[in-house]
Amino acid sequence: MKTFLWVLLAGVVVSTPVFAHHGNAAFDAGKRLELTGTVTEWDWSNPHCWLKFDVKDQSGKVVNWVVETSNAADMVERGWSKRTFKAGDQVTVTLEPVKSGQPVGRVISVLLPNGKTLGLNYVGQ
């Protein structure tokens, strides 16, 4: 049986804005969620790449989360690629959610099935 985690990691954390081609105002700055689920789609495109993944909560309800990264060119500089995810991959996503309460946020880091973690550091920096 798969177990899924909903972990609210931070409340009082000084904000670390990451990227947002489309502004910061919508995000709950500094808040972190760590969600484990199954990739349904990895959209490698502009203006931003986005990852969709299904997360089952404790009541068994499945919620499809949509989380954005930066644009494709920028993510290449961070070591990501079009082949980073495929549908069905099990991933654990640390994200900054939006304030609206919708299952939407932006990626902070992702633990991949191979045990590696991809983040937002530019490679070599």
Binding site: V7, L9, S15, T16, P17, V18, F19, A20, H21, G23, N24, R32, E34, S70, D74, T94, E96, I108, S109, G119, L120, N121, Y122, Q125
Partner: peptide
């Protein structure tokens, strides 16, 4: 911070 300028931040959990 914004617009992809962050470096080393956002380590997540």
């Amino acid at each position: 911070g914004a617009g992809g300028q962050a470096r080393g931040g956002g380590g997540g959990g």
